[in-house]
Design a protein around this nucleic acid. Structure first.
Lengths: 337, 337
DNA sequence: CTGAAAGCGCTAACAG
DNA sequence: CTGTTAGCGCTTTCAG
């Protein structure tokens, strides 16, 4: 039983009493049911206003079987990519009167299923953002979450819409751009191993070397943080490549700093590319050539798919593809003669 | 009535039936009530496991009068400061089994009260982060939100703990640092007008000019974004000052880029300081001298205060102060002779 | 130690 | 058009 405050919050019964009607009528008025006599409705509105009555959403949720809340689980809230997705989803959902509950798995893949399940029980649906779990685990989990929207992963489960950024294509474009500038010795500074988007970049690079057999491609272990990029500076400086494809803009910025400290000029001595076109990418020095991910559309589309499935359980479940496009700035140029 | 799925989720009744006991007993077992006969308890556990039963949190919340969720309302989720607070609060809360619901007011101060109220109704408490609303509005709102924790604002209301960063002190330190280097003509590139933390910096600067009457201080309109900093480049370049205090690291980075494009060297021609010591601040070129805000402690302390008030309505409500400390990097140096 | 029953705050059939 | 009543899924008194 609930009784934790000295005097209870004002409930539907208080309004009913004050307006001299039943709860049911108050409920009808609060929900804009027009079949209520307007005089009575006015009386109820007045009573509600005087008491500053607001319906208790928990009671409402229990009765309606919906919470008007969605959950979003991300691998790491400190990652700008996920921050930006979170923000866009949240804004899109808010426009339709929905809220978002967040869950951060801290990159622990075994937590993802638990967090997603919990979120699902409290919410009308969940968006799983770039989950790190294995494909098998994902296939098993997806059906239990139903209104589920997947970002940067796909599943066999027929009623799960996916939104995927074609990271492979973006990195191919960046590579091609370097080749056109005249680079032949190229290195890829890798991202986190568990990241599906890193794997996609690697696949894209396989195609890239097929398309340009004259290119000599090597791989340098990196990461997705400023520090990781910075720490790779020595390895990059000594690898012999003239063009470096970096996993993302964050790592690229760290690398840029480290190279500058070592007296290596970009783009004169070395060309650098980032990935994502984060807000700061145009303000590094020099500005970063990068692949822009249309991330704003992504958040709002994720919400749209979610809303469709909330409204209608068997709504369509397409896989939406997002194509990054090249954003050429000052960090790339022809190699030294 | 709720009936939107073809077959309902498994509820407490299903487990009870399967184990041949009453709902009450299942409830007791699920809540670890030890007064249950262990044989029966085992039977219930088994039944629950077979059916993959998980208690419905909405029903639970209604009965218990608590949701184990807190709300956090921020002015703008794209602001790195708030992202970082959100993340830290969320991680701290998660450790105690609480979740967080987010609300972004999009810098619209009139939305704050509404969002906070809604969040409060669905949650056990709310964290109001740097609200833009007037002091009067805040005083009126605070008592209605009770378990309320305020970040970067304070209120008269006796049972509202506050966490405030002493932005004024930090900017004084930055100013003093410039003076020690020999700067006398200094400019402050301002932040958003409605931002309390900008106001605090302005107050700190008042004291700063009192302490150093030899300093000539001017103000240049800025903002809190990369673009705002960048757009202020011309104004900064022509203002005659030799040291620029920028509202935060983000704007400082934008400015750095703009100055570089105009051939102005930092720190040789102009010294620049940021504020916040965001993760990228050490990787701008040159690295930013800035005031580091101990923001991680802030998030976990905010949660601790919140938890205290959830557990005990009349818990203490101190105002916790956070002192920024100087972080000196390459963007400041003595002025040109 | 267990079950029956009431109640959390609300919505929605169903009568009237 | 309005009130009565049942019920959403769970917890907790209160008897037994």
């Amino acid at each position: 039983m609930a009784d934790r405050s000295t005097r209870r919050r004002v409930g539907i019964g208080d309004v009913a009493a004050r307006a001299g009607v039943s709860h049911a009528t108050v409920s009808r008025v609060m929900n804009g049911n027009t079949t209520v006599n307007s005089a009575i409705a006015a009386r109820v509105q007045a009573a509600a206003a005087e008491l500053k009555y607001k319906p208790n959403p928990v009671g409402r949720s229990l009765a309606l079987g919906k919470t008007e809340t969605i959950g979003i689980v991300v691998p790491d809230l400190s990652n700008p990519t996920f921050q930006s997705i979170l923000r866009d989803v949240s804004i899109a959902a808010a426009r339709d009167g929905y809220r978002v509950l967040i869950a951060d798995s801290s990159e622990v893949s075994s937590e993802e299923a638990i967090l997603a399940g919990e979120a699902r029980r409290r919410c009308d649906g969940v968006v799983l953002c770039a989950p790190r779990m294995s494909q098998d685990d994902l296939e098993e989990l997806a059906p239990t979450l139903h209104p589920l929207v997947l970002i940067n992963r796909t599943t066999e489960h027929s009623s799960t819409p996916s939104l995927v950024v074609d990271y492979g294509h973006g990195i191919q474009q960046l590579g091609a751009h370097l080749v056109e500038l005249g680079h032949r010795r190229i290195a890829y500074l890798t991202g986190p191993e568990r990241s599906a988007s890193n794997v996609q970049r690697l696949r894209g690079l396989e195609k890239f070397v097929q398309d340009y057999p004259e290119v000599e491609l090597q791989f340098i272990p990196g990461g997705n943080t400023y520090d990781a990029g910075n720490e790779a500076s020595d390895a990059v400086a000594s690898c012999g490549a003239t063009g470096i494809l970096v996993f993302n803009d964050v790592a690229a910025m760290g690398l840029l700093h480290g190279l500058s400290e070592r007296g290596i000029r970009v783009p004169e001595d070395l060309s650098i590319t980032g990935y994502d076109d984060m807000p700061f990418a145009r303000y590094t020095m020099p500005g970063l050539t990068t692949a822009a991910v249309p991330i704003t559309q992504l958040g709002s589309l994720a919400w749209r798919r979610m809303r469709e499935h909330i409204k209608q359980a068997d709504a369509e479940s397409p896989t939406d593809h997002f194509e990054p496009h090249l954003e050429i700035r000052g960090s790339t140029a022809p190699p030294k003669a």
